[in-house]
Structures are given as C-alpha cells and as structure tokens.
Computed example of a mutant assay.
Amino acid sequence: MTRKADAMSSTLAQPRTTFSATRLRGRRRIPAVPVATDDLAAVRAIPGWQVVERSAFGFVDQVAVAPSAIVAITARHHTPLQGDAHVQRAWKAIRDAKGSAALMKQMLGPDSPEVTPVLVLSGPGAPELEDGHMLIKGVRVVDGSRPHLWAHLFNAPNLDELEQRRLARSLRV
C-alpha cells in the first residue's frame, strides 16, 4: 500500500462523529446508507460543469462534463461505523468507482474524451479529507461538502463549452 492509502486507511478507521443515523428493520438496527440526491447537489452547483441529470449509464450515480473530462461520479453517504468497517467500505467504493468509469469509457469508445472516476463522500461517517480530495488507485476521492477544494482539478480547458454541451446532450437518456 502507498503512504496515501495507509493514511486513508487510518483516517477511515476513526469515525468523525459519535451519533449513528440508523433505521429500524424488524428488531435489527441497520445503518441507512442510501445515495441521496442532496449528496450530489454540490456537484450540480459547480460553475462550468454540464451535469447530465438522467444519463444512459445507470451504473454511475451521476455524469458530468467538466472542462477537462467526462466525470463518472459514484456517491457514498456514510453513517458512522466502528473499526475496519470504514476501511472495507471505502475500498469497495473505490473499486466500484474505478470499474464504473472503465465500463463507461469502454461503452463510449476509444475516440471519446477521458472518463475520470470520482468518488464523492458525504454524511456524518465520511472520512475527513484534509485537502478535500485524494487520489487513490486512479480514483479521485472527494469531500462532497467542499467542492471548492477539488473542482479546480477538472478545470483544464481540454473541452470548450460547445463541446461540453454536445457531450452532455449525447450522454442523456
């Protein structure tokens, strides 16, 4: 494991808060971790991004066309967990994000712009990312509540505004 991965593992092992958002199912208490639309509101508010609300790619939570690339967004809303559960959940989410972006690129074809996997973390149990983002195994892991710390990473003007709109239209259902 790299130093960044080790740092993330230790960060993930420490819950950020002590309360637990749970729901009752029968007599068992199960953590509620659905992807809420509000978790992606910050992404929709980034200036210069064309967000595809209903994409043809149901395996990603949201697709956006940033000035530098197509962004395949996987979102995870985290409730507090203890011990290794944080680490296991994070590595699964990273694998899911990377796999979704690779599948999307394959479906779009070799001539399409780069598809960048992004994992947006939110919720009371989400790990604290000191800089608001980290690159782990090719996946940009970002703090969903602080896009001002990471949106600039996708602002290199590889795609002009007209091309962004054309791509966004072509990605809609």
Rank of each mutant, 00 (worst) to 15 (best):
D38I: 01
L40H: 07
A93V: 01
H148S: 14
I73W: 04
V173C: 05
G109Q: 05
P117I: 06
D39V: 00
D61R: 05
E161N: 07
R172F: 05
P31M: 13
H78Y: 15
A90E: 10
V65G: 03
A69W: 00
P67Y: 05
Q62V: 07
E114W: 01
R146Y: 04
V65S: 02
R44H: 08
T17H: 13
G99I: 06
L167T: 03
I46M: 08
R25N: 06
I30Q: 09
A85L: 13
I73K: 01
G138V: 09
P47Y: 02
P110R: 13
L162R: 14
R89D: 14
M104C: 04
Q50P: 00
T116A: 12
L149A: 13
E163Q: 13
E53Q: 08
S145W: 04
V33L: 00
H152E: 12
P47C: 03
S170I: 01
L40P: 09
P157F: 08
W91C: 02
L167C: 04
R25L: 05
E161P: 02
L108I: 04
A126F: 07
A21E: 10
R16Q: 04
V35H: 00
W49M: 05
A64I: 01
L12Q: 04
A90V: 03
R27Q: 10
L24E: 11
G132W: 06
K98D: 14
A21L: 13
K92N: 08
V141G: 03
V52A: 02
R29E: 15
A42H: 08
A101S: 11
V141R: 01
R89M: 09
D131W: 03
E128W: 11
Q88G: 14
K98T: 03
V52E: 05
I30R: 12
E130R: 14
E128A: 10
E114I: 02
L153D: 09
A21Q: 10
R165G: 02
D160R: 09
K105V: 00
L135G: 02
H86F: 10
Q164P: 01
I73D: 01
E161Q: 12
R76I: 00
I46N: 11
A41L: 07
E161V: 14
V63N: 04
S170R: 12
A32N: 10
A75S: 15
V118I: 12
H77Y: 10
H77F: 05
A72E: 05
G132F: 11
P110K: 14
Q106N: 11
G144N: 05
Q106I: 03
R29G: 04
K105N: 00
E163A: 15
E53C: 00
V120T: 10
S112G: 06
M107Q: 14
W91G: 07
R89P: 01
A69H: 06
S55C: 11
G123C: 08
T116G: 01
A21S: 14
E161C: 01
G123L: 02
G58S: 13
S170Y: 03
A13H: 05
G48L: 02
T17C: 06
T18P: 01
A64M: 03
R166L: 11
W91Y: 09
H78T: 05
V120S: 09
P34L: 05
D96R: 12
G125A: 09
L108W: 04
